[in-house]
């Protein structure tokens, strides 16, 4: 009988510890995956200045920045998402060279799916300025580093199409 009570007590502690570990792990993974600099200070309501979320390359290049989303301001949005204002997304090569810059007046950022979306305008530019894209309505999928623009897409290539060159035969 005494042994049975001990077992039940141990089970309760084990369950409690396991649950705590799971919660802590989820919190840790969430903070590591998206690393939102302002999330710790973010209140439940009201505008916060200086949002930044970063994504790094997987091992063994985990110290190299892959993408960074900055915003001048953020506010809470329904579904636990964030409303970012004056969003600026940057994508980097492994060596740290910025390849693309995406700017939007505002967007909704979802931590759980790692997506940013908006029905508003967006402007994308390559680091060298030879490629730029404008459009209305977009979704940024952080996992696949994919940008989907859903309306009025206008791409401009400046010197990016190869010119005719006489081959040395």
């Amino acid at each position: 009988m005494r042994r049975e009570v001990m077992t039940k007590t141990n089970l309760k502690w084990t369950t409690a510890l396991t649950a705590t570990a799971v919660v802590l792990t989820l919190l840790w993974q969430g903070s590591e995956a998206f690393a939102p600099a302002a999330s710790a200070q973010a209140p439940q309501t009201g505008l916060v200045e200086g949002f930044e979320a970063t994504e790094y390359y997987p091992e063994p290049n985990h110290t190299n920045l892959r993408a960074r989303i900055k915003a001048e301001g953020l506010n809470t949005h329904e579904g636990g998402r964030l409303l970012l204002t004056t969003m600026h997304l940057q994508v980097f090569q492994m060596d740290g060279t910025p390849t693309f810059s995406v700017k939007a007046p505002e967007c909704i950022y979802d931590f759980t799916t790692g997506t940013a979306s908006s029905t508003g305008k967006l402007h994308l530019a390559s680091g060298d300025g030879r490629l730029s894209v404008e459009g209305e309505g977009f979704q940024w999928q952080q996992k696949g580093m994919t940008l989907i623009i859903s309306n009025r897409v206008h791409t401009v290539l400046r010197g990016a199409l190869a010119q005719k060159k006489k081959a040395k035969q």
Binding site: M145, V153, G159, L161, Q163
Partner: peptide, 27 residues
């Protein structure tokens, strides 16, 4: 392929939708 190409040849692409993979550079 023009005979006298300008240094900055400008090409415009218009469409309803674009899916752009920013790492594989596939649009």
């Amino acid at each position: 392929s023009p005979v006298s190409p300008k240094p900055e040849r400008e090409t415009h692409i218009l469409s309803d939708l674009l899916e752009f993979e920013l790492e594989s550079l596939n649009a």
